[in-house]
Simulated scan of single mutants.
Amino acid sequence: MTSSWEQKTFKLKTRTKGCYLVTDEIVANLPELKHYKVGTLNLFMQHTSAALSLNENWDSDVRLDMNDSLDRIVVEHEDYRHSAEGPDDMTGHIKSSLVGASLTIPITNGRLNTGTWQGIWYMEFRRFNHNRSIVATINGLKE
């Protein structure tokens, strides 16, 4: 086995405001994963009004409830000083800071080693379609 690092950038499918399960989309963009016996995958969202989360992968109601809950915690209004791209601009930045821009997930035998009910979420906080890029960094031992 040899130690290795790989890094690539890819775009997620364009989506509007909401929480989306994207585990399969992430894995499809990273065929390199299958060559790692043990390691880690770091995913970094290159944007300030979207986020990544590791959360429920089975019941889509959880994603709807999360979206609704974040809207109650960070209320959209026009009193924010920063509104260069509209009234949902600053709320997107706040939500992104609360949730986070990166995830680190273990790799075991060529697969992401997540829990039974865990999946990777892309959380879009802006109302209109946006193109979002992910930087994926893989490090570990290759077979």
Score class of each variant (00 low, 15 high):
Tyr20Gly: 09
Met1Thr: 03
Glu56Ser: 01
Asn57Leu: 00
Gly18Ile: 03
Phe44Ser: 09
Leu141Lys: 03
Phe128His: 12
His93Gln: 04
Val99Phe: 06
Leu41Ile: 12
Arg63Gly: 05
Thr16His: 02
Tyr122Arg: 01
Asp88Arg: 05
Tyr80Asp: 02
Lys17Glu: 13
Gly119Asp: 09
Phe44Glu: 06
Phe10Tyr: 11
Pro87Leu: 10
Glu143Lys: 13
Glu85Gln: 03
Trp117Lys: 04
Ala28Asp: 07
Lys11Ser: 15
Asp68Ile: 14
Asn67Gly: 07
Pro31Cys: 11
Glu78Arg: 00
Thr23Ile: 07
Gly119Ala: 07
Asn139Gln: 12
Ser4Val: 02
Ile107His: 04
Ser97Arg: 12
Leu141Ile: 09
Arg126Phe: 00
Ser53Asn: 12
Val22Ala: 02
Lys37Leu: 11
His82Ile: 10
Gln46Val: 05
Tyr122Gln: 00
Ser96Trp: 07
Thr2Met: 15
Ile73Asp: 07
Asp88Phe: 12
Tyr80Glu: 08
Thr48Ile: 14
Ala101Lys: 13
Lys34Asn: 08
Thr2Arg: 11
His47Glu: 05
Pro106Phe: 01
Val99Ala: 10
Gly86Met: 09
Asn55Asp: 05
Lys13Pro: 06
Gln46Lys: 14
Tyr122Asp: 03
Cys19Val: 15
Asp24Asn: 13
Ser69Glu: 11
Glu32Arg: 02
Asn42Trp: 13
Ser102Gly: 11
Gly39Cys: 01
Phe44Gly: 02
Ile107Arg: 03
Ser60Asp: 00
Asn29Val: 03
Met66Ser: 01
Ser102Trp: 04
Val22Leu: 08
Ile120Gln: 08
Pro31Ala: 15
Met90Asp: 05
Ser96Thr: 13
Gln118Thr: 07
His47Arg: 07
Asp79Lys: 14
Asp24Arg: 13
Ala28Met: 07
Trp117Gly: 10
Thr2Lys: 14
Phe125Cys: 11
Met1Tyr: 07
Tyr80Gly: 07
Leu21Pro: 02
Phe125Asp: 10
Leu98Trp: 01
Phe44Lys: 01
Leu64Val: 14
Gly115Gln: 03
Asn55Lys: 08
Leu141Trp: 02
Ser53Ala: 15
Arg132Ser: 03
Ala50Phe: 10
Ser83Thr: 08
Thr91Arg: 01
Leu98Lys: 00
Ala28His: 02
Thr23Trp: 08
Glu85Asp: 08
Val27Gly: 02
Arg15Pro: 05
His130Lys: 04
Gly92Phe: 06
Lys37Thr: 10
His130Trp: 12
Trp121Lys: 09
Val27Met: 06
Ala84Arg: 13
Pro106Met: 00
